[in-house]
Design a binder for these strands. Structure first.
Lengths: 238, 238
DNA sequence: ACCTGAACACCGTTCAAGT
DNA sequence: ACCTGAACACCGTTCAAGT
């Protein structure tokens, strides 16, 4: 290459030495900006101004990058949850847990690719365990036995962290209403119940500004149903 | 290559012509046997005794293979669900839906990689819509408004199909009990609540033969809690 | 119509060599 | 100690050529 000149020194941003921390932060930023598929070792190296091979001095391999990225997200969630204003768990465990879960959810709304990564982790990270430890603490303060708290974690699953994998996802860009209506008419005989349901939903929302499903509303509906079911079992002393 | 001989004709299995159907079935078998990571175009081609490029005459690309694989699994689920012995939905919608969901779950237990594929599909396949249409039919027969049926689908999410992504998964091979105990002692100060919970669970199951979590039990506990919550809202007429 | 070989533009990762 | 270039063994996919 050509020798470095003073001009280069000025235009180049100063070389911050590589570190695990810096690599992981860059990975999150890259996924935020260009999507999870863009998170390759080569692109990540480019992002931090190094060669792909340099990354291996700070992370063992690509799996370790995914593990680390989950760590970073979990820290963001922990910080968000700590700042929540809510009744103490002793006073009202449902309100306390609900508020924290909704705060965690906001983090995932900022990193929509993150659930997909979290669900591929086979070894549960200490950061995830720490989060669930916090959830169990709230349940215990609310009067749960360890046994019921354990079952509660399974019932909540990823919802405790603030996300659920939506099975009915909009096809890429949200399907236009006109297009949706045409599709519904075409499907009416094959899927009479779904079509009836969709027709009803559109009727309830004549402007159609909200689209078919209000994610936040559905998430809270499910969360409340689950928290109520758990409270009933707790009160029954199971 | 060498010219074909009569011996070749006998040892070679007769060449069944390639077809979309045959490709997709082979894809499911390959994932069952060697895991989802092994499902590459090149290995799939090998599986059906052809070159990778030949596949492209029957499927558009790899995404289409995943779409097709979901189709095959959904057909298997539909067949399993159709054979279920259960009360009619008019009589007892909870029992009717519960039995069908548990039947669907058995299909996913045979294809443990399938949830991961299903959750990456961005365009909801007709097969999935058909399944959910069936679920809505049961809810309607049980007295649900379209609006509540819609919310029920969101609450159930993938559980309606018989699976949930387990966030606490055993690390590869199920962690040995001795190892688990050692880890717990080490974690006691950092995660007091989780450790307490685990200690309690082990106490309930002194032999430890079941391991920490009984997946089937947890799945049914969550399912029942959710179905009860939905029934309460239906009875309240929301 | 259906299949194929060679080639292209990517991957993650190893290794030996640089400073 | 930290970084790198070349190389290896893979990917999915295009294209022109075969039958």
């Amino acid at each position: 290459m050509t020798p470095r000149t003073d001009a280069d020194e000025l235009t180049e941003r100063p070389r911050i030495p590589l570190s695990r921390r810096r690599v992981l932060r860059a990975a999150v930023e890259l996924a935020d900006r260009d999507g999870l598929a863009s998170l390759t070792m080569r692109r990540l190296a480019q992002e931090v101004g190094a060669e792909a091979m340099s990354l291996y001095h700070h992370v063992a391999n690509k799996e370790a990058v995914f593990d680390g990225v989950v760590e970073v997200i979990l820290e963001e969630i922990m910080a968000a949850v700590d700042e929540v204003q809510a009744p103490s768990p002793e006073e009202d465990w449902q309100a306390a847990l609900r508020a924290r879960i909704l705060a965690a959810r906001e983090v995932f709304l900022r990193h929509r690719w993150a659930p997909r990564v979290l669900e591929t982790r086979t070894t549960t990270s200490p950061a995830v365990i720490a989060y669930y430890d916090h959830v169990v603490a709230i349940l215990r303060a609310g009067g749960f036995s360890f046994d019921l708290a354990h079952r509660a974690l399974h019932v909540l699953g990823s919802r405790a962290l603030g996300f659920t994998q939506e099975l009915f996802r909009p096809d890429g860009a949200r399907t236009a209403n006109a297009e949706a209506a045409a599709m519904m008419e075409q499907m009416a005989d094959r899927f009479p119940n779904i079509v009836g349901m969709l027709a009803d939903a559109v009727h309830d929302d004549p402007d159609g500004t909200l689209g078919f499903c209000d994610d936040q509303f559905e998430f809270e509906f499910a969360l409340d149903l689950i928290l109520e079911g758990l409270e009933r079992r707790r009160a029954a002393g199971s």
